[in-house]
């Protein structure tokens, strides 16, 4: 198991190299120099610009720049240097450190929300197959699958504005600095509720469908008859025997669901003004803030790949038949 994890983590490296190389190339296909933005700022110090050009080798061709960037990113001296944000005027690494936790938090709560809603629904739809409940939930699943996140985010803001029950976006209240730790926790939670629901809803449908299909498959299997023949009550047959089997493919699916969640979170972060890396990359692209874009790409892809890896580990842990070695 450990070697598998190590191998997967090593496989991450060429993947990230490929992605960032591709991204650098693409960004240099874009017209204009991203230093234009800096130069246009009145207060820009020419010496400072010169220093930037030297440091990042901006007068070199893009592939040379890429290797310079790479040289800085790789933590030779145990410290990654992801470059400098021209827009925010801080280290990209620092910026990522501020934004990444918010995105990870939102992704995790959304995934949890989606599971908590989708699994019972999928199980019930399987047990009461072809009933009214099954029909309605499958229609709702289509709806959840089809609603664009940013539209849902707008509706959520609309709801928050009309009822005043929830804050209008953001991650914390303005008085956050002056709050006690407990109140801080509740403040963040309060701000998280709507984004979580909005991001999570899109994944409910697919998780529910997979759960329903697996459950139905497993209900028909022979070990269910064995359990019934032992005298096990129907409820335990379903929730102990069938459930533990039906959940396995779902764990793999959680890896995929994570992909759509990270993507969906990007729109929701922008619309609901939630300070995560999605929010950050959007503004960085508008500003052609190259190093921020690269940093955000690296982080979001790493998140995805690690999410998949975690799903595989969880699967091996839940399904005794799977042993990686």
């Amino acid at each position: 198991m450990k070697t598998v994890i190590a191998r997967r983590l090593i496989a991450l490296i060429p993947m990230l190299l490929g992605i960032t190389f591709m991204a650098t190339m693409l960004m240099h296909l874009a017209p204009g120099d991203f230093l234009d933005q800096v130069r246009m700022q009145r207060d820009a110090d020419p010496e400072y610009i010169e220093r930037l050009e030297r440091e990042f080798g901006l007068d070199n061709p893009w592939y040379v720049q890429y290797f310079l960037w790479l040289k800085n990113v790789v933590p030779w001296d145990l410290r990654s240097d992801f470059g400098y944000s021209f827009h925010y005027k801080v280290d990209v690494w620092e910026l990522l450190g501020q934004r990444l936790p918010a995105t990870i938090l939102l992704s995790v709560t959304s995934l949890a929300f989606a599971w908590v809603i989708a699994i019972p629904l999928g199980v019930l739809a399987a047990i009461y197959k072809d009933s009214i409940f099954d029909r309605i939930s499958s229609i709702l699943a289509y709806a959840a699958l089809s609603i664009p996140e940013f539209f849902l985010a707008l509706l959520a803001l609309f709801f928050a504005a009309r009822t005043g029950l929830f804050p209008l976006g953001g991650f914390t209240s303005t008085e956050f600095e002056f709050m006690s730790p407990v109140r801080r926790f509740f403040d963040v939670a309060h701000h998280l509720i709507l984004p979580t629901i909005v991001v999570g809803i899109g994944s409910i449908a697919s998780i529910m469908r997979i759960m329903r299909a697996n459950f139905i498959d497993n209900i028909r299997s022979e070990y269910v008859t064995t359990a019934r023949a032992k005298g096990v009550p129907e409820g335990i047959v379903m929730f102990r025997h069938v459930f533990r089997n039906a959940i396995n493919p779902l764990i793999t699916a959680a890896g995929f669901a994570f992909s759509s969640i990270v993507s969906g979170a990007l729109m929701v972060e922008i619309v609901m003004n939630y300070p995560g890396i999605g929010h950050m990359i959007f503004h960085a692209i508008l500003q052609q803030d190259q190093f921020v874009v690269l940093g955000a790409l690296v982080m979001s892809s790493t998140m995805l790949i690690l999410g998949n890896l975690l799903a595989d580990i969880a699967l091996a842990w839940n399904d005794p038949r799977i042993r990686y070695d």
Partner: peptide, 22 residues
């Protein structure tokens, strides 16, 4: 259910699929 397993027990044809794999 009080008869199943306690009074009347079963052995099935396919042991491989009749046991719960997890």
């Amino acid at each position: 259910r009080r008869y199943r397993g306690r009074e009347i027990a079963y052995i099935f044809q396919e042991p491989a699929t009749s046991l719960n794999p997890v």
